[in-house]
Simulated assay, not measured.
Amino acid sequence: MSLKDNFTADEWFKIMTGPGRAGAAVVAASPSGLTGLLAEAQAIAAAVRESVGSESRTPLMEAMAADLLGQPAQKAPEQERARNVEDVKTQSLEGVRQAMWLVSAKTTPADTNAYREMLMLVAQRTAEAATEGGFLGIGGERVNDKERAVLEELKTMLGGFAQQEERGMVTHETPPANSSDVRPEPGPDGSGNSN
């Protein structure tokens, strides 16, 4: 049994797309032109490769690396379409929260820490990838206030998972079906259920 077997196909999809959603939240906070968008997309891919390619990678990073190398892309589950960049940012942050909840609930603390670090690395590298403002790339700033705000929001959100884990609030199993035994923290959809 592999680590991936701990997750449903939908849950694994959320975990695999979590890093891209962290980058998308930063991109949506302050959209760049075409060259900036390409640089940000390359930064997302490079940060993910760096995280899953680390020599000291965890079982979760191993499973993600195997999927990135060998599996055809999985069809995305149906979801509400974003109508504007604010919706993209909001949906991306929610996707990151759901993915982090799944990882913290169903993997080891080492996997949880590695995933959290990967999400922050992706977000930071995305923010730094393109110069914002200025004229023809001159006089802009590397990370603007909107991007810094999203980075801070991600750091706060992901830090909350670390604090829950330290207090022992996150267990490494699917919450029980009996409503009187349900864990105190909400599930990825806010309901307290893992599915």
Score class of each variant (00 low, 15 high):
61 M>L: 15
180 S>F: 13
132 E>V: 14
144 N>L: 05
110 A>I: 03
90 T>I: 05
47 A>L: 11
93 L>S: 01
176 P>K: 00
19 P>M: 01
174 T>A: 11
32 S>G: 05
171 T>D: 12
38 L>R: 08
159 G>I: 08
61 M>K: 04
178 N>H: 06
107 T>R: 00
108 T>L: 08
85 V>T: 11
116 R>H: 15
9 A>K: 13
10 D>S: 14
118 M>E: 09
91 Q>C: 02
152 E>G: 06
8 T>C: 05
89 K>T: 12
92 S>C: 08
25 A>E: 03
63 A>L: 03
54 S>K: 15
123 A>D: 06
23 G>C: 04
70 G>M: 14
22 A>Q: 05
55 E>F: 13
34 L>R: 08
26 V>L: 01
73 A>Y: 11
141 E>S: 09
137 G>M: 00
62 E>V: 14
102 L>R: 03
187 G>F: 03
107 T>W: 01
18 G>H: 06
47 A>D: 09
75 K>V: 15
83 R>S: 10
27 V>N: 10
99 A>P: 09
46 A>I: 07
26 V>C: 03
151 L>A: 01
168 G>L: 02
115 Y>L: 05
100 M>P: 06
74 Q>T: 15
65 A>N: 06
34 L>V: 14
180 S>M: 09
89 K>P: 09
148 R>E: 12
91 Q>R: 07
98 Q>K: 15
59 P>V: 04
39 A>W: 04
90 T>V: 11
138 I>P: 00
147 E>S: 08
129 A>R: 05
138 I>R: 00
